[in-house]
């Protein structure tokens, strides 16, 4: 199927990742515009149910089902996807800008001798099927529209939460094509020994719809309980500033900012956060920002939609209570 639109379907704990579903939605639109089929790429072992689920979004699901691809391995994944891409010549290949994709796709681009745009904030098509990818530069201080004329497929990794989820699933219409994993062991120099991901009830920061971030104004690790309580009501994920992480109050994985995670939720609370540029660079594409700070001069207010001036220790419990009543979770 030359000229198809491919979407990489990443999964975790038996579920297609939200960011992949977002790209399947966008991919459907793009495929419609260029008049090409939409194909989902699924690698994994014992994930037949996911392959079936994907047929409700994609015209074809390519499924490599083999213990060799149960865990992500950059070399194996790159080899088998590149082989198929050489054969099928897709014109566009989309994925969420996850840790996995950011590890895999640069290599894939190199192997396929094509370009790649990472952390895209928008995608648009020109009439000739050229994909215009908008990506941030200088931590979001500028944006650039980039295109790839010199290679196919055009690869774009999109920041999670950029596109909305596809409409309610239709009936399954696509077909699943199972593909063998023919890996040449001589090429595999990487062995994944262990993946540890403590089970979490919450979405990762990068995919969360609502984030409540605490800064050094929280004063101590135990005070994050106040944020956890608010997060419970809002079904939010808790984030932290570097000041907090460096103080050992929260793990590094919770850090939002230029040297932490880039997040793009619908609603972001910055609580006791001063608003240093390094932090702002990681959260400035949030749709709505609420800052809570006792210092009316705090820079974070320049990056907020709503600025609450007050002592967080007084404001947070009240806010949690009000939200409980307001969202009917009381």
């Amino acid at each position: 199927m030359a000229g198809a639109v491919w979407v990489f379907a990443e999964h975790q704990e038996g579920k297609i990742r939200k960011t992949s579903l977002e790209l399947l939605g966008k991919g459907r639109q793009v495929a419609g515009e260029v008049g090409a089929p939409l194909i989902a790429m699924l690698l994994g072992s014992g994930v037949d149910a996911l392959a079936q689920e994907l047929t409700t979004y994609a015209d074809t699901v390519y499924h490599w089902d083999d213990p060799a691809v149960a865990l992500y391995n950059s070399e194996i994944y790159c080899q088998i996807i590149a082989e198929l891409a050489h054969k099928e010549q897709p014109q566009i290949f989309l994925a969420g800008a996850t840790f996995l994709a950011r590890d895999l796709f640069p290599r894939l681009a190199g192997r396929l001798k094509t370009g790649i745009a990472v952390d895209c904030l928008n995608l648009e098509l020109e009439e000739d099927g050229l994909l215009v990818a908008r990506r941030p530069l200088f931590g979001g201080k500028a944006l650039a529209d980039v295109v790839c004329r010199q290679g196919r497929p055009q690869i774009a990794l999109v920041r999670p939460n950029t596109f909305s989820l596809p409409d309610a699933q239709g009936p399954a219409h696509g077909t699943v094509v199972r593909l063998p994993v023919g890996v040449d062991p001589a090429h595999v120099k990487i062995q994944v020994l262990e993946v540890s991901r403590p089970p979490k009830e919450r979405l990762d920061l990068t995919e969360a719809e609502v984030i409540v971030t605490g800064g050094r104004g929280m004063k101590a690790a135990e005070n994050f309980r106040l944020l956890e309580e608010l997060a419970d009501v809002l079904n939010a994920t808790v984030g932290a500033t570097r000041g907090v992480v460096d103080s050992g109050w929260r793990p590094h994985g919770d850090q939002v900012g230029k040297s932490g995670k880039t997040v793009s939720p619908k609603l972001y609370f910055a609580v006791g956060v001063s608003g240093a540029i390094h932090h702002v660079m990681g959260m400035d594409t949030s749709k709505v920002v609420v800052a809570i700070n006792k210092d009316v001069q705090a820079p974070i207010f320049q990056y907020a939609d709503y600025g609450v001036v007050g002592d967080l220790f007084e404001v947070l419990p009240l806010l949690t209570k009000e939200m409980k009543q307001g969202t009917g979770k009381g």
Partner: peptide
């Protein structure tokens, strides 16, 4: 492989609505 067509400024957030006063009210 890539070509930059044009640059844009980061879209500006609308001016912040500041809420001050009694905590329960705000």
């Amino acid at each position: 492989k890539e070509e930059i067509l044009r640059y844009h400024r980061h879209p500006q957030r609308p001016a912040v609505t500041m809420l001050q006063g009694e905590a329960a009210d705000i």
